[in-house]
């Protein structure tokens, strides 16, 4: 294997996307995604057993498509990387079993990697090596965390995280209150464009007196959901129509305000000049705009990968695997375990 530009196949099955990615060094060769999101829509959220079944149906065809797109055979792969956690255990196991069997069948090493670290490192495929240090903001239906990424992406320290709902979860729950389909984020984003973001002053979690010292980089979104529910119910009780666009715009503003404020504060207080945003919520147009404005005003360089690299995908796993190979990190043992709560400080097993 050429260790400066290894060909790494990445497998992602932690939630509802079956992702197979192939990279050579920093170069993206293929990123095949099969989503089971439509199967979960009628349940109003991701159903673990439905996701696990869909992964098993989708994974082998996705492997074939990724090889075809990259113009290579599985024999050409130098290493396998797979999401080992955090995520839904039953879903993770489909990818992990596939990765271990491929490793044995092809005689190449396997890396069980951290999903959150992958969300940060994926940006290297689009914008080149990450500066040292970098602050990462990861926002999706499953996670909301601020991370300090240092020592050439080898040390990842959690700065803060959500104390209750993830940001994407907050979007989903509010969308449901407004009668919008699952997943709610894209709908809120679309409908918010017709509304006034200052129409309703929804609460910003952990912004009260004292909170800023106790939870400088944490998030809380459950109070927001409760406030929206109460506001909508009051309107309905008064027999007035619910101004859906104004509610969507105001909720989005509250979520994005908190996320970007914490991101900028972390960069400024830690003396970090670069921020990177990842996760499905990074596709939110208001988050991108506000993050750009606030980072620019604070002299922070902002990096946001394009949407298909922000949502869960195999390329991000391959990107981290490629880093581990190039950094000379030993592969994972073949009996590595899958865990729903792999600490972010561990890049791999």
């Amino acid at each position: 294997m050429t260790t400066d530009a290894p060909v790494v196949l990445g497998i992602e099955t932690s939630c509802d996307e079956t992702g197979i990615g192939i990279v050579r060094g920093h170069e993206l060769l293929a990123n095949e995604i099969a989503s089971s999101v439509d199967e979960h829509a009628r349940f109003g959220g991701v159903v673990p057993e439905v996701a696990s079944r869909a992964h098993l149906e989708a994974i082998e065809p996705a492997l074939g498509r990724a090889c075809a797109t990259a113009g290579m055979r599985l024999d050409d792969v130098d290493a396998i990387a797979v999401t080992a956690g955090p995520g839904l255990v039953g879903a993770l196991l489909v990818g992990v079993a596939t990765a271990k069997a491929l490793s044995v069948a092809l005689g190449v090493p396997v890396y069980g990697v951290n999903h959150l670290a992958s969300h940060v490192v994926v940006d290297e495929l689009q914008h080149g090596p990450l500066p040292d240090p970098t602050v990462g903001l990861l926002v999706s239906g499953g996670h909301s965390s601020l991370l300090l990424v240092a020592d050439d992406v080898s040390t990842i320290t959690p700065l803060g995280q959500t104390l209750d709902d993830a940001a994407g979860e907050a979007f989903d729950k509010v969308a449901r209150l407004l009668g919008l389909p699952f997943p709610g984020g894209p709908w809120i984003d679309r409908i918010a464009r017709e509304g006034d973001p200052r129409a309703i002053a929804f609460p910003r979690g952990l912004s009260g007196p004292g909170d800023r010292d106790r939870y400088p980089y944490d998030f809380s979104f459950s109070g927001l959901k409760t406030a929206v529910a109460r506001w909508v119910r009051a309107k309905e009780a008064a027999g007035e129509p619910v101004p859906v666009a104004d509610v969507a715009a105001s909720v989005q503003e509250a979520i994005v305000d908190v996320l970007t404020a914490r991101l900028v504060a972390a960069c400024v207080e830690k003396g970090v000049g670069t921020a990177v945003i990842g996760g499905g919520v990074a596709a939110n147009s208001r988050l991108r705009t506000m993050a750009e404005e606030r980072c620019a005003a604070a002299g922070i360089s902002l990096r946001v990968p394009r949407p298909d690299l922000c949502t869960d995908n195999g390329a991000m796993v391959a990107a981290l695997g490629s880093r581990l190979v190039r950094d000379g990190v030993p592969p994972s043992p073949l009996d590595f375990v899958t865990t729903s709560n792999l600490p972010v400080t561990r890049r791999s097993w």
Partner: peptide
């Protein structure tokens, strides 16, 4: 039981694809 069952089938599919 599904979780274990899927492990074997996913492994078999991967071996078949690789070979």
């Amino acid at each position: 039981p599904y979780t274990g069952l899927r492990v074997g089938i996913a492994s078999a599919l991967a071996l078949g694809a690789a070979w």
